[in-house]
Design a protein around this nucleic acid. Sequence first.
DNA 1: TCAGCTATTCAGTGTTACTATCTACCGGTA
DNA 2: TACCGGTAGATAGTAACACTGAATAGCTGA
Lengths: 109, 109
Amino acid sequence: MGKQATEMLKGVLEGIVLAILSGRPAYGYEITAWLRDQGFSEIAEGTIYALLVRIEQRGFVDVEKVPSEKGPPRKVYSLNAQGREYLAEFWRTWSFLTERLEQLRDGGN
Amino acid sequence: MGKQATEMLKGVLEGIVLAILSGRPAYGYEITAWLRDQGFSEIAEGTIYALLVRIEQRGFVDVEKVPSEKGPPRKVYSLNAQGREYLAEFWRTWSFLTERLEQLRDGGN
DNA sequence: TCAGCTATTCAGTGTTACTATCTACCGGTA
DNA sequence: TACCGGTAGATAGTAACACTGAATAGCTGA
């Protein structure tokens, strides 16, 4: 993945994180590690934390401070009803985009 | 489509336009009209023109001025070799993204 | 005590699409 | 003639988002 990915992630990364949280609660460090594991190697540490602050401010997640065995306490985020609604909207938009792009890919060659 | 689409289009819209141009040469007004037709109703007029200027500056397209039957002359853009290479890279990144998101969608529910 | 891992925060930057507006050319019509 | 609507493109200023780079802080083991 190159520079293109950076720009392509805008708007999408938020949906990715919400999708992760829809499966189970998680904290920033954990999400970052998981994303790296999945091949999103170029996502910076700070990016996820900034994103989590944004979605918290928009009221899509509930937050709970949980003490960690090692290191400072974790901020565990879990998706709430409003977040689920927003995530559903995200999937609709995503589907729309993929359909159009699939058409273009097939027709373009 | 709502506000989410706006952010999600960043980075993707460029690929969409390049994909259109890979099929055939086209000019700005035409591309805008086609996109609206495809359901991208919220794409602003000026957006495509700005994008075309960017990809021209980056050397992805060749430009030709063609007189129009009605109105001012058209700037017809066609994808060149460098643009095709960049488009291929776009599709690779896009595939990567869709794969990850498909996994998340299936696992998330 | 100090290195190293865990975990979060923040200031400053660049890219991108948007809004809003402007210029300009043409055909038709009152 | 004067004006309007449709075609075609350009541009200045703005907001959102991810990045870079660094700082802070807690805990464990050598």
